[in-house]
Nucleic acid binder design. Structure first.
Length: 205
DNA sequence: TAGGCCATCTGGTCCT
DNA sequence: AGGACCAGATGGCCTA
C-alpha cells in the first residue's frame, strides 16, 4: 500500500508529505489547471469519519477507490517511463561514444541515432554505387558494417570522410528511415554525424 | 541565478 | 472497466 509512496520518497521526489492524493495534488498544483477546484481538501480519515454514517457505499469509499486507481496508474506510468529510459540507454550503448564520455541527453540520443542511421545508410549507398562501378562486392562488406555497427571505440567499420563527402545533399526521404519533421534543418547535422561527434552536440539543436 | 534536463504526478483520450 | 499513451505541470538537481 505505502510502497508506492516509499518509492517516491526514495526517488527524491518529495511530493507527498501526506498521502491523500487529491490533497497532495491540491497542495502541489495550486496553480495547475488540472487541479480540482476544491477549495479546502480534507484528509481521507476525516472524510471517512464524517461520511461513515451515510449509505453503504459512501463517498469516502468512492474516493478510496479512486485513489487506489490513481496510485496504480502512477505506478504503471512510472514503470512505463522507466522502460522508455531503459530503451534509451540501450540506444546510447549502441551509438558511438563521445570522446569526453558525456552522456547524451534524451533528445540528443534520438537525434544522434537518427543521424547515425542516416550516415550508415549513406555509407551503404555509396559503397553500392562504387561496387557497381568496380565490380567488387562491397555489399557484403557494407552489410557487415551494419551488423557490426561501430561500437564505442571500435572502428570495425570506420567511415572515411572521403566517401561520404559526396553526399552533401540530404537525400532525406530516400535514405532516411524515418520521416523527419524538418529535413532542411538536419542537412548539416548529417555531415557532423559523419565527420565529428564532438561537433554534433553544439549543432544538434 | 537562470536555464536545461529530468522524474514524477495527473487528467484526458484511445484502445482492448 | 482497465490499461496504455500522451501532454501539461511541477519541483529538484546541475551547470554556466
Amino acid at each position: 500500500m505505502d510502497s508506492v509512496y516509499s518509492d517516491i520518497d526514495s526517488n527524491s521526489c518529495d511530493f507527498f508529505p501526506h498521502t491523500d492524493d487529491e490533497d497532495s495534488r491540491g497542495s502541489l498544483r495550486s496553480a495547475s489547471p488540472a487541479s480540482s477546484p476544491d477549495p479546502d481538501p480534507e484528509p481521507v480519515q476525516q472524510l471517512q469519519k464524517k461520511r461513515r454514517r451515510g449509505r453503504g457505499r459512501s463517498d469516502a469509499t468512492v474516493q478510496v477507490v479512486k485513489k487506489n486507481r490513481r496510485v496504480k496508474a502512477n505506478d504503471r506510468e512510472r514503470n512505463r517511463m522507466h522502460n522508455l529510459n531503459d530503451a534509451l540507454d540501450e540506444l546510447r550503448g549502441v551509438l558511438p561514444a563521445f570522446p569526453d564520455e558525456t552522456k547524451l541527453t534524451k533528445i540528443e540520443t534520438l537525434r544522434f541515432a537518427h543521424n547515425y542511421i542516416w550516415a550508415l545508410s549513406e555509407t551503404i549507398r555509396i559503397a553500392d554505387l562504387q561496387a557497381g562501378k568496380t565490380g567488387d562486392a562491397p555489399l557484403l562488406l557494407s552489410s557487415a558494417c551494419i551488423a557490426e555497427a561501430p561500437s564505442p571505440g571500435s572502428d570495425a567499420c570506420s567511415w572515411s570522410s572521403s566517401g561520404s563527402s559526396s553526399s552533401s545533399s540530404p537525400v532525406y526521404s530516400a535514405s532516411s528511415p524515418g520521416s523527419p519533421g524538418a529535413p532542411e534543418d538536419y542537412s548539416y547535422l548529417h555531415q557532423d554525424a559523419l565527420f565529428g561527434f564532438r561537433s554534433l552536440v553544439p549543432g544538434i539543436y
